[in-house]
Design a binder for these strands. Structure first.
Length: 658
DNA sequence: ATAGGGTTAG
């Protein structure tokens, strides 16, 4: 009836819209000082009476004028996030009899949420009628933003139980909580309701759904949804681009960005940061530079966030010096920038530079290191063979910076100790861990066991790995190699059989190189490239020169059940070699080559590429799944075992020189 | 009255 008088009608709405039985008030003994308590049961509230209507007992304090004053005050508190005045007003409202007014209470809940006092907000929420969708939205939002995210989802279900239909605000909030938890099942259920309530094509709801699917790893679902939304805006495009980027599809991210520009959308800062990071992940320097150019044309390149993404991109593409130049240009160096540069040095094996940069960061004293800084430092120590420095960083995390080491830090330490042959120490560290060791930790130990040919510990690590990830073929392959190296052919074969019995296949090695803006990918023994003839001719030419220089193929990485000649052929046509040979014949002499490989570079290729770099006089950068290898003049930036041992020798015998 | 996307590691 009075629906057309929206404002008035809302203010005057009857209060008892939610049956009390569904939301029992806590008993009175439980009430805290600030609770929005209803009057004691002996004098039940006159719930059917409009709040600010004349009432013989509360007439002076519920005049409309009074109400508006409160509302205006609360509005200003919300906009200023003024918590203390809000609390005082809360107390006064309790006395004034406006304690049941949904709108005022909701504003107060809103204020408490915005001031990070979610507990207080929730207490208040529990004591007021919940007929108001806005009230639910505000509280769900608070938990979605600040956690615990589970509460946001459970509130959403409670809201449905109350018979309220979620709207275009509820969905993005609750979906954000699902994203944070990677709660795919809950997200799917919410999606169903989105569809049946007709909100699927709303850009806000759509973006939230895309984000949820992306963070649960379902890029394809995200894309289906994206395609179904007719009127997309920039944020929706950005969400989909980010969905590809975060799920390991950098090329799709870049293509979609191109598509977006082609359709007349102007990239925003978020677009550029996302695609720059995508091209960093793809180690796609030409495309990264193209986007650098685009950022420049759009006037975004001077922004620190773009610049930091570029630091990361250039570092990952092998241009560490350019990254450093951009890093120095930053107006303000925040933790992300320091981390990008430190990690950039670390992954290229420039341990000294990484450590020096960390020292400078501490001297400048503007920002504190975080857990990522330590991942970077530890991996720098790892790639530089600095075991004792790594140990001391690891110890200082907690003692100097109050950062408890997380699983990743343990993984770095196991890697570091393990690579250096300190297997017992590594295993001891796993046993001392304060949390459960994950597959990364055991994987690091297993890898170390392979390098140092420790069969017993390797078996143990593999047992753990099979429990944790029974479907990962790589584990079986590693153990099989350990057995093979120890001459235990029988066991090696059993592991291989176990793997095939379970229907597992090793992922196929693939390497790629970009030449003139085009990606050329190669599989092992690949003959499909148009230049295959020239590629294999080049490899043969190099092999002759390598043999003269003293190169001996090591066929150990290849399984024992293959004949020697075949082994030799398999090794010589490893994908990284094909990519290098193609790079050599299709770029001018002296050009640095950047090859990316989806798995690790095998030991034999590692040796072979050292020879190649010397023979052709080129710098060759290989980015494998773990790190970067810079091959130059017959050497690699990845220290050999002997070099590592030489480095730590002085530390082991401090007094000997005396 | 309330809303969505972006950078570092693993």
């Amino acid at each position: 009836m009075h629906r057309s008088l929206n404002r008035t009608a809302r203010r005057l709405e009857p209060l008892a819209a939610v049956p009390r039985s569904r939301h029992p008030l806590p008993d009175s003994s439980d009430r805290t000082q600030l609770s929005w308590s209803s009057p004691p049961a002996a004098t039940p509230p006159r719930r059917q009476q409009p709040l600010d209507a004349p009432n013989s007992s509360v007439l002076p304090r519920s005049t409309p004028r009074h109400y508006d004053d409160y509302l205006n005050l609360l509005r200003s508190f919300v906009s200023r996030k003024a918590l203390e005045p809000g609390k005082q007003l809360h107390a006064r409202l309790l006395l004034s009899g406006l304690g049941y007014n949904t709108i005022l209470a909701t504003k107060l809940v809103d204020l408490y949420c915005l001031c990070d006092h979610v507990t207080l907000a929730h207490k208040l929420f529990d004591r007021i009628p919940k007929s108001n969708l806005f009230l639910w939205n505000v509280l769900i939002r608070a938990y979605a933003w600040n956690g615990p995210h589970e509460v946001a989802i459970s509130l959403y279900y409670q809201m449905l139980d109350c018979g309220l239909a979620p709207d275009n605000f509820t969905f993005p909030f609750v979906l954000k909580a699902c994203s944070a938890l990677s709660a795919l099942e809950a997200g799917r259920g919410i999606h169903e309701l989105v569809v049946s309530t007709g909100w699927e094509t709303d850009v806000f709801v759509g973006a939230a759904l895309i984000d949820m699917y992306a963070k649960c790893g379902c890029v394809d679902r995200a894309r289906e949804l994206f395609d179904r939304i007719p009127n997309r805006d920039v944020v929706l495009w950005n969400s989909m681009i980010a969905a590809y980027a975060r799920n390991g599809h950098p090329s799709e991210a870049l293509l979609l960005c191109r598509d977006m520009v082609a359709r007349g959308f102007t990239p925003t800062l978020a677009t550029l940061v996302t695609v720059i990071s995508a091209s960093a992940d793809a180690a796609a320097l030409p495309r990264g530079r193209e986007i650098h150019g685009l950022s420049w044309r759009r006037g975004f390149d001077s922004q620190d966030k773009v610049k930091t993404a570029l630091v990361d991109m250039y570092a990952k593409s092998g241009w560490v010096k350019v990254a450093r130049v951009l890093f120095e240009q930053l107006a303000e160096k925040r933790i992300v920038s320091w981390n990008s540069m430190i990690c950039g040095y670390g992954m290229h094996g420039h341990a000294a530079e990484a450590l020096a940069l960390f020292d400078r960061m501490r001297e400048e004293d503007q920002v504190l290191p975080d857990h990522i800084t330590f991942v970077g430092l530890l991996s720098a120590c790892n790639h530089g063979g600095l075991v004792d420095e790594g140990r001391s960083f690891f110890d200082s995390m907690l003692s100097d910076y109050r950062i408890p080491p997380a699983v990743q830090h343990y993984t770095c330490m196991i890697d570091l100790l393990g690579h250096s042959g300190r297997l017992a120490e590594a295993y001891k560290l796993i046993q001392d861990m304060t949390m459960a060791a994950d597959s990364g930790v055991w994987g690091a130990l297993l890898n170390a066991c392979k390098i140092h040919r420790n069969v017993e510990l390797g078996e143990l690590a593999l047992q753990k790995l099979i429990e944790l990830e029974p479907d990962d073929a790589g584990n079986y392959v590693l153990l099989s190699n350990i057995y093979a190296q120890a001459g235990k052919w029988q066991e090696a074969a059993e592991v291989r059989k176990l793997m095939t019995d379970r229907g597992l296949k090793k992922s196929i090695a693939c390497s790629w190189i970009e030449v003139k803006n085009q990606v050329h990918a190669f599989l092992v023994g690949d003959l499909s490239h148009p230049s295959s003839g020239e590629i294999y001719a080049e490899l043969e030419r190099l092999e002759g020169l390598m043999a003269e220089a003293g190169y001996e193929p090591d066929t150990m990485p290849v399984f024992h059940d293959v004949g020697d000649d075949e082994k030799r052929n398999m090794v010589r046509s490893h994908s990284e070699r094909l990519a290098i040979a193609f790079g050599l014949i299709s770029t001018p002499p002296g050009t640095t080559l950047l090859v990316t490989k989806n798995l690790r570079v095998c030991e034999d290729c590692h040796t072979a590429i050292k020879f190649i770099s010397a023979i052709v006089g080129r710098e060759i950068i290989i980015r494998d799944v773990n790190r970067y290898h810079h091959f130059k003049d017959g050497e690699c930036s990845r220290l050999s075992l002997r070099q590592r041992q030489a480095q730590r020798a002085p530390a082991l015998q401090p007094a000997a020189a005396g």
